Simulated assay, not measured.
Amino acid sequence: MGDHHRRGAVVVEDVAHFTPGELDRDAVFYVAGHRGLVGSAITRILQASGFTNVVGMTSSQLDLRNREAVREFFQRMKPRYVVMAAAKVGGILANSSYPVEFLSDNVQIQVNVLDAAREVEVERLLFLGSSCIYPKYAEQPIREDALLTGRLESTNDAYAIAKIAGIIHVQAVRREYGLPWISAMPTNLYGPNDNFSPLGSHVLPALIRRYDEAVQSGAQTVTNWGTGLARREFLHSDDMADACLHLLEHYDGATHVNVGTGTDSTIRDVADTIASVVGYRGLTEWDTSKPDGTPQKLLDVSRLEGSGWASKISLTEGVERTVAWYREHSGSVRSA
């Protein structure tokens, strides 16, 4: 990128000269959060697609909240491509119990990585947000332009604000520095390397653990939070990773892109699917004193599909694959 994009006080127009295309398979490609649900899936697909220099750092090797450590890492590695999949994440209970940590940790991580990436002029950066950035009562299915048009869901507003800050940060870098960075907003994700903790997990892995434990213990009743009538869209992490590579090679624009299946299910239906897959035959009860969260959260994925990508893994197939992985790794999954 030329100096006229990087210097001076004049804000430049959004990137207009960049044409996406096939990424260099031999370039340094840093996946922030490479051991997590999304990051591990992205690492797998990059390696399967022929990338020879995929870099990942554990949190003990590089604390992304440490600004100087992050800057030194980028100066040393000078990655050409970056996927920002590192984040502090959790379900309703974790988000509502620890809003300060969800806001502070995520903002620090994002600012440190994005600033360091800008300093070394990373060519392509994909920032991953979350569908919780949208207003609680957004019109369904939710279009990208619904962002900042209404109040957020109170149980995860701190996390949502952090992710919104990341989207705006990417857009600001495009305007001021001319770097063709992009953002994607995934729907509810699940798959290998998910968090199956009873207190820190999202709804689908929490349900897998709960029903599997009921099968193992012979329990005749499982109790879930809420009414079960809230509707959610779920995307397998392998589909998400495939979409990420597709966007890096086919999309460039300031507008973030929704990534999902375009279909949703009630939590009751999801619970029934999981119960069937794990072999649970008992009763399911619903604790209606507990919150449902957002009534519905279905993304409009027409922008993504217009770029030539659509999900391939059905919910039943995805649950079957995830349950098999969970049982195979039951001694080492994140469960605390």
Rank of each mutant, 00 (worst) to 15 (best):
Y134E: 09
N193P: 07
T284I: 06
S131A: 09
S307D: 11
K163N: 09
A116Y: 10
V83N: 12
L248P: 08
V173F: 09
S201K: 07
M84P: 02
D26H: 08
T263Q: 14
T227F: 14
A324C: 15
P135F: 01
D238T: 13
G90Y: 01
E317T: 14
L152S: 07
V278H: 04
L64P: 00
G178T: 08
I168H: 08
S97A: 13
L248K: 11
V257D: 00
D212K: 04
V10R: 10
D63R: 05
L189A: 12
V122W: 00
V28N: 03
A158Y: 11
E176W: 07
E153D: 14
A48D: 09
V278N: 02
P295M: 12
R151V: 12
T221H: 13
I182K: 01
F51L: 04
F196N: 11
A86T: 00
G129I: 01
I167F: 12
R334M: 03
G253E: 05
S131T: 03
F196C: 06
N95K: 07
Y134D: 12
Q108P: 02
V120S: 09
R25P: 01
I164F: 10
R232V: 03
H17R: 14
L152F: 01
F29E: 00
Q296F: 05
D242A: 11
P198Y: 10
V89T: 15
A41W: 02
T58K: 07
T261M: 07
S276F: 08
R174E: 10
Y134K: 06
G331V: 10
I164G: 04
A206W: 15
A146D: 05
M84G: 07
F234G: 04
E121Q: 13
L207S: 03
V83E: 04
T266N: 12
L103V: 02
P291Q: 09
V203P: 02
G200I: 11
L315S: 08
Q108I: 01
L229H: 06
A86W: 00
A41K: 07
S201P: 04
D14G: 05
P291A: 05
L248T: 05
T261E: 14
S96K: 07
N258Q: 15
Y251G: 03
V15R: 06
P180T: 07
H202N: 15
R124S: 12
P135R: 03
F74Y: 10
G166K: 03
R303W: 03
P180R: 02
L46K: 08
D264Q: 05
L298W: 01
E153L: 05
E285A: 06
A87V: 04
F51V: 05
N53A: 15
I92H: 11
A117N: 14
D269T: 13
V107W: 03
P135D: 02
S330A: 14
D194T: 01
G260C: 10
R175Y: 02
T187E: 01
L125E: 05
R210G: 00
N53M: 06
S131V: 05
L62S: 01
I42N: 00
A138W: 11
